[in-house]
Each structure stands twice: as C-alpha cells, then as structure tokens.
C-alpha cells in the first residue's frame, strides 16, 4: 500500500509532462513512461492481465506508432506560445473536479465483497469457469468463452483500423 501514493504522484507528473513538453519525441517517451507507471498501478491493484496489456500496448506498440508518425511529420510543436487558459475553463474544471471527488466518495471500498461488481455475475464465473472450460485464468475464460462475441467485435475493430490505415496512408504500395 505504501507504493500507491508515489506511483499516483508520478502518474500525474508524467501526464502533465507529456502535455507540456515542447519536443514531441520527448513527449512520446514521457507518454510511454506514463503507460508503464499505469501498468505498475494495475499490477499493484491485482489486475495482472490489464497491466500486461497496458505495458505492451501503451509503452510498446503505441510508442512505436507515435515515433513512426513523427518521422513523417514535424518533430517540434510549432506553436510559439500557448494561449493562456480562459477563466471559465479554470472555474468549470474546478467544479467538475469537485463533483467527481464528491461522487468518488460514494464508491465502494477496494475489494468490498458487497459491492455490485462482486455480487452480480462475478461469483458465477469464479465458481464455474474452471469446471466448464478447464481454464484456470478466469480473465481468459470470460474474454474468449463467456464474452467471445464481444471479443470478436473488438477483433473486427482492430482489423478495420489496419485496413483504414492502409487505405489512407499507402499510395501505390504493392
């Protein structure tokens, strides 16, 4: 539990740094650091599969795609000066932040067995997935068996992204 607060502070620092840094390549690498920190947070919370995906996709593949995009475009943020934030945005964002914190106070505690997420259908998966599918990893059993139609549509989304990139970016490429 002692690691959570430093990780959270580091997460906010890297997020702010990725936005504020002028050099876009530095920004991409700081964004990779942000993803890796987020993966550590997921791992601390016990969501190992999510942490794995976040580390591999966020810190690995997305960084490569951003870098490849930057090699084809400009590497610097060419705006000389950012316009200062208007006072309406300052006040409005503060109010939204206070509302979100107020709403977060009513969320169930971490790992609460009486919370809606733990009482609805999760116990069925935890009790029956090994017997029904012989798959010890419950996350894989849910993703690929109980919710396989959702996974199929997600796969179609990824396929469509590849097709769209090829259609837009490749010009006369064999």
């Amino acid at each position: 539990m002692t690691f959570e607060l430093p990780l959270l502070i580091f997460l906010v620092m890297t997020a702010a740094g990725a936005i504020l840094v002028k050099d876009l390549i530095s920004s991409v690498f700081i964004l990779g650091t942000y993803s890796f920190t987020l993966a550590l947070v997921w791992a601390l919370l016990g969501a190992v599969d999510v942490a794995f995906v976040e580390a591999v996709v966020g810190a690995g593949l997305a960084t490569v795609f951003f870098l490849l995009t930057l090699f084809s475009t400009l590497e610097k943020d060419t705006r000389l000066r950012r316009s200062p934030m208007p006072w309406t945005a300052m006040v409005g964002l503060s109010i939204v932040a206070i509302l979100l914190l107020y709403g977060a106070a009513d969320l169930p505690a971490f790992g609460d067995p009486g919370s809606p997420a733990s009482t609805h259908i999760s116990p069925f998966y935890l009790e029956n997935s090994v017997g029904q599918t012989r798959t010890p990893n419950v996350v894989t059993a849910i993703l690929m068996d109980y919710r396989s139609l959702d996974t199929l549509v997600e796969t179609i989304v990824i396929f469509t992204a590849g097709i769209a990139c090829a259609l837009i970016l490749r010009k006369g490429d064999s």
Partner: peptide, 26 residues
C-alpha cells in the same frame, strides 16, 4: 478458447505490422 486466441493473435500481429508499414510507406 485456444483456437480463438490464435485467431486474435494473428489478427493483432498482422494489423500491427500493417499499420507500421503504412505509417512508414510515405
């Protein structure tokens, strides 16, 4: 589950390489 996982892996791997090639084709 094993066969669909191979399907997802093939789709994601091919799409990743395809996007990288598209981005650097310019």
């Amino acid at each position: 589950i094993l066969m669909t996982q191979f399907g997802v892996a093939a789709d994601v791997a091919v799409t990743g390489v395809s996007i990288a090639v598209s981005l650097s084709a310019d």
